[in-house]
């Protein structure tokens, strides 16, 4: 099976500044690939290389088996930019019609259908769209031609929660239809519900590619238990994957790496009144990968 996206040693320098270094990656058909990293890590650089807006310093990238320079490739991609700039007096609907025409036309009513779904007002002039509406226009033009590959760059930043919900549903539909998605984000929570695999990029380098399930297992969580009576600290020491244990009377604070199983079993011996578990902090996952970077980095399915 040909990979939908395949890069080999893909490298981009802006003058002396490194944008992306030696990216080797494969995204398979039907896969939803989450591309995670802090701002400035190289996510947008990768995406712009795949779209042929910028050209690699070295290495190569193919999409659907063809070089990214091949114009026809972009006909099969849908892409809403992270920072979408729209200007001018043209009405949003006319602009979308233009985009559709260049793409060889989309089925009748498709634009209106998407607009209704996202609750976008397309009668507004492009230069006067609110940030939310601008994002919606970006989403509509990316989804309207039912592309085989969706490339989403920080797609939910600036969307209000209802639209975000609708948008994630649309991504899931794309996945159900067997099409491929590359979705970048700096928030794990944004991709973990839709992505099959996640690549983590940091300072221009891909440091890890993991199944989402595996990543979650490796995630660092802060956990708090409150019991009905003071507990002995010894009961929680030397548990697998549990560290930084502090006990203050009837409450326990600790950090877990990976599975919470051992901790839960230990806590079950007492009466638990209340429990707080923070969402895994991506920053800490980064730090985990950072410290053991090289050995775990592997790419491809």
């Amino acid at each position: 099976m040909t990979a939908v996206v395949e890069t080999e040693g893909l490298t981009k320098f802006y003058g002396r500044r490194k944008g992306l270094e030696d990216l080797t990656l494969q995204i398979q058909p039907g896969e939803v690939f989450g591309y995670l990293g802090p701002n400035g890590a190289g996510k947008t650089t990768t995406i712009r290389l795949l779209l042929d807006v910028i050209r690699p310093t070295s290495g190569r990238a193919t999409v659907f088996g063809a070089d990214t320079r091949d114009t026809a490739v972009r006909g099969r991609i849908g892409y809403p930019p992270g920072e979408l700039a729209l200007e001018g007096r043209e009405r949003a609907h006319d602009f979308l019609t233009f985009m559709a025409d260049v793409r060889g036309g989309v089925s009748r009513g498709r634009i209106d259908e998407l607009a209704e779904r996202l609750d976008a007002d397309l009668s507004i002039r492009m230069g006067q769209l609110s940030k939310g509406n601008r994002q919606k226009v970006g989403l509509i033009q990316a989804f309207m031609h039912e592309p085989e590959l969706l490339i989403l760059d920080e797609p939910t930043s600036g969307l209000d929660p209802l639209v975000q919900h609708e948008f994630l549903a649309m991504v899931r539909e794309v996945r159900t239809a067997g099409r491929t998605v590359l979705m970048s984000s700096h928030v794990l929570a944004e991709v973990e519900n839709v992505a099959d695999r996640v690549g983590i990029v940091r300072a221009g380098r891909l440091v890890a590619v993991e199944d989402v399930a595996a990543l979650r297992e490796r995630a660092v969580r802060h956990v708090e238990f409150h019991f009905d009576a003071p507990v002995p600290k010894e009961a929680f020491e030397d548990l697998l994957g549990v560290r930084d244990v502090t006990v203050e009377g009837a409450s326990l604070r600790c950090t877990i790496d990976g599975r919470p199983d051992a901790l839960i079993k230990a806590a079950a011996k007492f009466t638990v009144v209340h429990m707080v578990s923070s969402e895994p902090d991506l920053e800490e996952i980064f730090l985990t990968y950072y410290s053991e970077e090289a050995p775990r980095a592997h790419a491809g399915a």
């Binding site: 712009r48 779209l51 042929d52 807006v53 114009t71 026809a72 490739v73 972009r74 006909g75 991609i77 892409y79 930019p81 920072e83 979408l84 700039a85 729209l86 200007e87 001018g88 985009m99 260049v102 793409r103 970006g138 033009q141």
Partner: peptide, 11 residues
Amino acid sequence: QGTLELTMTLP
């Protein structure tokens, strides 16, 4: 203005 990028993602 940043509007060219979207045009360039068209085929």
